[in-house]
Simulated scan of single mutants.
Amino acid sequence: MSRRKTPYQKKPFESTGASNDTSSNIYTSMLLSNAWRSLTAQQQRLYLYCKAQYYGQKTKPNGDPLCFEMNQSKWCGLYGLYEKSNAKGFYRDLSALIGAGFLTCVECGAITRTKSVYRFSSMWQKFGTPAFEVAPSEMTLAMQRKERIKKP
């Protein structure tokens, strides 16, 4: 593979042109998938911000190149996605992303009061098929509790 001779020039409709500006790709196969269509507009927006967070982080948690951290200062303060009083909405939408196979929870910071670590997943490609399964180890603690309550 050869390197680009000149760096990619951002188009005016893509960016303000700042050097620290990152981009994140969303491909048509994802946009047209049943998993993506099962999400609400707010959940889709949260996924886009997760990708922006992922590409914006210089060092990856746990040394895993697919991991990123998301905490209240980011989703509430930096991105302005949810009000501080609407933490329940954030966790509901994040659980939907995990439930649809887009993310997995690597470390839940609820117990230790640290940043939670999430990982991107390709399980969404199997959404709606018998091969689709979100393992309890990939869920947040709240999702695991709900699963235990559901099962008789």
Score class of each variant (00 low, 15 high):
23 S>C: 03
114 T>M: 08
114 T>C: 10
151 K>R: 15
11 K>Y: 09
22 T>N: 10
112 T>W: 04
118 Y>W: 10
125 Q>C: 05
43 Q>F: 07
25 N>F: 07
16 T>N: 06
138 E>D: 15
40 T>L: 12
109 G>T: 00
68 F>K: 00
64 D>E: 13
39 L>R: 07
105 C>I: 00
69 E>C: 12
26 I>Q: 03
35 A>P: 05
103 L>D: 00
120 F>D: 04
9 Q>D: 08
119 R>W: 08
125 Q>H: 04
71 N>G: 13
7 P>G: 13
57 Q>D: 14
124 W>M: 00
22 T>K: 13
54 Y>D: 06
78 L>M: 12
126 K>T: 15
2 S>P: 13
122 S>T: 14
8 Y>K: 07
121 S>V: 07
142 A>I: 09
49 Y>P: 06
146 K>P: 03
34 N>E: 07
81 L>M: 04
69 E>Y: 08
80 G>V: 04
118 Y>R: 01
149 I>P: 05
45 R>Y: 09
66 L>N: 13
25 N>R: 15
130 P>Y: 02
139 M>N: 06
17 G>Q: 05
6 T>A: 14
38 S>K: 08
146 K>Y: 08
73 S>W: 12
86 N>E: 12
123 M>R: 13
21 D>N: 13
42 Q>M: 12
150 K>C: 15
86 N>Q: 12
28 T>V: 10
147 E>Q: 15
143 M>P: 06
53 Q>I: 07
47 Y>M: 11
5 K>E: 11
60 K>Y: 07
49 Y>M: 12
97 L>Q: 01
54 Y>E: 02
36 W>V: 02
129 T>A: 09
97 L>M: 05
145 R>E: 14
111 I>R: 15
69 E>F: 05
110 A>L: 10
30 M>S: 07
54 Y>W: 15
140 T>W: 01
142 A>V: 11
57 Q>E: 14
95 S>D: 09
55 Y>F: 14
41 A>T: 13
15 S>L: 03
107 E>P: 00
137 S>T: 14
1 M>E: 14
52 A>L: 12
99 G>S: 06
42 Q>S: 15
71 N>A: 15
82 Y>C: 01
43 Q>A: 15
137 S>E: 13
93 D>T: 03
122 S>P: 04
77 G>P: 03
92 R>N: 08
121 S>H: 09
15 S>K: 02
